[in-house]
Structures are given as C-alpha cells and as structure tokens.
Simulated assay, not measured.
Amino acid sequence: MREGLIYAVALVALVLDQASKYAVIHVMQLDRRMSIDVLPPLLNFRYGENRGINFGLFQEAGDASRWILIGLSLAICLGVWIWLRRSGGKVWMRISAGLLIGGALGNVVDRLLYGYVLDFLNMSCCGIDNPFVFNVADIFIFAGAIGLILFDGRGAKKAP
C-alpha cells in the first residue's frame, strides 16, 4: 500500500509537532514565561499566537479566517494526497507529502483547540535579530513542500 508511508510520516510529524507544543507550554510554561533562551542567539523560544498565515499576515481577519484557514489546510492536504495517490510517487515524494500533510494537520489541530497556531521557535544569527517565530509543523510543511518540488522527477530526462 503506497499511501501507508504517507500516513506513517504524517502521523509521526503530527505527533512530534503536538508533543513539542505540549512540552513548551505545559512543561516549560512558555505561555507564562514568554521567553526562554536556549542557545542564544541561534535558538530561542518565544511565545507566539498566530491567528493568520505566515509572518502573521491576516492576524486581524477574525474568527471567519480561522475556519477558512482550517478548510484551506484540509483542502491542500487532500489535494496532495490525491496527487500522490494518482501519480504513485517515489519514496521521497511520499515522505515529503507525509511531512507536509502532518505539519498542516498539526497547525489545524492548534486552530481547532486554541483558535490560533502556537509558535515558539525563534532563530537569529550573525547580528540579524529575527522577530518572527514558527513551530515544528512549519518546518515539516516547508521541508515537505521543498521535497515535493525536488523529488517530483518530471524534469528528469529518461535515457534513450
């Protein structure tokens, strides 16, 4: 079953994302402390509630945007799953799809439970102070999207 790998990777990504959020909120109490320097300036935990999309865009759009973003995320997950199911996809394509789907579902869970996406990772380097925060799901979404592009194989030329 080709979809089995997609399901397994998506489940692992979802669990890792939610476990990381549980740890920083319930164990490290980041929501009360607001800031924890882990390996400054490279890695810091900063509490953030993202009610919009990337970089905090559309934060003020209200509760309707929450449900629109949930629907859009689920539609993208379904679209990627259907695309891979039809195309078959090599192993790395299925892994990439699983990462993207698991990450997207992690952020959907946040929106359903809290009304926003919990962000907490902040990385800065080389004198540049990055004001943005993100989460483990965002890493999986980004890695999955890049993987889908890199491992698509449509650009590969077949030997004569």
Rank of each mutant, 00 (worst) to 15 (best):
F58E: 06
L42I: 11
H26N: 14
A64D: 05
V38E: 04
I149L: 11
D129Q: 13
D110T: 00
D129Y: 14
C126I: 04
S73H: 07
S124V: 09
K158P: 15
V136H: 08
G106S: 10
G144M: 00
E60R: 13
M1K: 14
L69F: 07
G62A: 00
D37V: 03
C126L: 10
G52H: 00
A104T: 01
L43I: 10
L99F: 02
L100W: 08
K157H: 13
W67P: 08
N54D: 09
G103K: 01
R86G: 09
N135P: 06
M123D: 00
W92C: 12
G89A: 05
Y22T: 10
V38L: 07
V108M: 01
K90V: 15
S65A: 15
E60Y: 11
F132I: 05
V27Q: 11
G56W: 02
A97Y: 00
P41A: 03
R2Q: 11
F142V: 12
L42F: 15
I141H: 06
L118S: 10
A145I: 08
A13R: 03
L69R: 00
Q29E: 14
V91H: 12
A145V: 05
A19R: 03
F120P: 02
E60W: 13
Q29H: 14
V80D: 01
L30H: 14
L43C: 08
V136R: 04
N130V: 04
G62V: 00
I149M: 13
L5R: 10
C126D: 05
G147P: 11
V38N: 07
Q59S: 04
F151G: 01
S20H: 03
